[in-house]
């Protein structure tokens, strides 16, 4: 079942990407999806049952809206820092704790942090994230934990765990 889920999603991606329904194209898509499924199927989502839970897709939409808003804010933030003549930067790498368990949730959290204002993930070691921050506004772990991770953690827990 896990393999079938991966196979169908790969085939859908292929059909959208090539965007024609000739029989030759579909046959090539099936072959390529089969190869990908056989090679990488074992490392696909460990609990695939969550894939068919519609409530999670609703939370994913909420997460997506929050994410896009943060992303737009990030761009204005970086553009301001780059264009301002005094360049208000105070960079540093801080250690942030996260409470997510599964690997895929951690991956999404790290990617979200990279796209939010002034932060970029350097490394993930067990449950600690090392984050490069362009303007370290506080040295108190509680404050920056909330400021960096707090926005996404709850949403991601609802989507992936």
């Amino acid at each position: 079942m896990k393999y079938i889920t991966l196979f169908i999603s790969m085939l859908l991606l292929w059909l959208l990407l090539t965007f024609n329904l000739h029989s030759a194209n579909i046959i090539i898509g099936v072959i390529v999806s089969l190869i990908v499924t056989l090679l990488f199927g074992h490392s696909f989502l460990t609990n695939w049952k969550l894939f068919y839970n519609p409530v999670r897709y609703l939370w994913a939409v909420v997460y997506l809206i929050v994410f896009i808003w943060e992303c737009v804010k990030a761009n204005f933030d970086v553009a301001y820092r780059v264009l301002s003549p005094r360049m208000p930067i105070k960079p540093g790498i801080v250690k942030v704790k996260c409470s997510l368990k599964t690997d895929i949730a951690k991956t999404f959290l790290a990617n979200s942090i990279t796209m939010t204002p002034g932060t970029i993930t350097v490394d993930v070691i067990s449950d600690c994230l090392y984050v490069h921050w362009i303007y370290v506004s506080s040295r108190d772990p509680k404050v920056y934990n909330k400021r960096i991770v707090g926005r996404f953690e709850k949403l991601l827990k609802k989507v992936f765990e």
Binding site: K90, P91, G92, I93, V94, K95, V122, D123, I125, C128, Y130, V136, R139
Partner: peptide, 9 residues
Amino acid sequence: SIVDDYKDA
């Protein structure tokens, strides 16, 4: 730069 936690890790 004012802090580098990753160096120790």
